[in-house]
Structures are given as C-alpha cells and as structure tokens.
Amino acid sequence: MTASKAASDHETDAAKTTSDLSDAANIKYLTVSNATFKKTEGQMLSVKVDGEEHPAVYVHCSFPHTNRSIYLSIRTIENKEIGMIRSLDEFPAETAQFLEEQVSIRYFAPEITRVVSVKEEFGYAYWEAETTAGLCRFTVRGGGGHTKLVTANRLLINDVDGNRFVIPDLTRLTDKEYRMVEMSM
C-alpha cells in the first residue's frame, strides 16, 4: 500500500475515529493561515508560526520513499517538531518549491537512470551507474541489508560510506540491467 493511498484511506474510512485520535496525538498542523515560510539569504529555511520566528528549520518527510509531498514535519536542528504540513498542495507554488528544495537537500540520493555495470568480488559489489547527478561509481558491501527494496519496485542502495542511491522503479530497467542488479539484492 502506498502512503498516499494510506493517507486517503485514513481520511475516509477512519473519519469517525480520527477526531479522537487527532485529539490524542495533538499534532500541530502548519497551514497557509498560521505559518509563513521564507528562504533566508543563507539558503536556509525559516518559518514564522503564530508570530514566533524559527530561523533555521529542516523539513523531514514522513514518507520519503512513497510520497514526499504529504505529511512533512518541520523540525529544528534539535529535532523539536514545530509542526506538520499535511500536503504541499495546500501552499502556494513558491513556498512549496522551497520546501521541496529543502527536502531534496535532506534526502540527497542520486536516482539511478541506467545501470552500467555491477561487478561482485570478495563480498563487495562495484557499481557504475548513470544517475540524475551524473555518472556514479560506488562500492556496496555485500550480504543483506545494503541493497534493499523499500517498496515493491523501489530499490535503495547504501554504499560503504552510507551514501544512498535509489532505483526508483525496478520494472523500468532493461532485462540486462535487472539481471545485474538482481544478483546483489
């Protein structure tokens, strides 16, 4: 089940119970009316909520793999939640854009567009792949956990330093690419 579906399910079939839950959870939602986001000169994000200014905030995704535009958590560097955004669609395009920028800074992971080669030797897989950030060559430790499916078709790859790479949709790979990737899954 994708997160967006989960979210919509959540809204419809649980409508009666949500009111109790949301009371109990007590989540502060940021909306256009109570929060103003601003991009600072230093390329940071600041937010003004109910008159209170938070100079440097970070955007955390609740569902970084399934849907990055819903349920964003706005947090300070001390990991204190200032509030959550239900959906970026609620905000004007400009605001949504710099929130998205912040998301892409935080969840930096080149998306692999073409797998050039995956070679395995002595417990390491050596990848060469074209990504959205250019051609990347990286090394992945073998044996479970470093290459894993996060949804049915989305593959997350962690290299030896913990850098992340993503194959957004395995079904879009060619057979030859899939064969190479499969052996290290």
Partner: peptide, 23 residues
C-alpha cells in the same frame, strides 16, 4: 542529513556553507 551532511555557519544569521556526501 539523510546519507549526507551540510555545513552550517552562524554569523549574523544562519547560512548554508556547503553540502557533502557521507564519505
């Protein structure tokens, strides 16, 4: 950050100095 890092400097106000990969 997730799988990478960022250098942030606080002068008059906070600013991003640069970002780097985990290595």
């Amino acid at each position: 950050l997730v799988a990478s890092g960022m250098v942030v400097m606080r002068a008059a106000e906070e600013r991003t100095v640069g970002a780097f990969t985990n290595g």
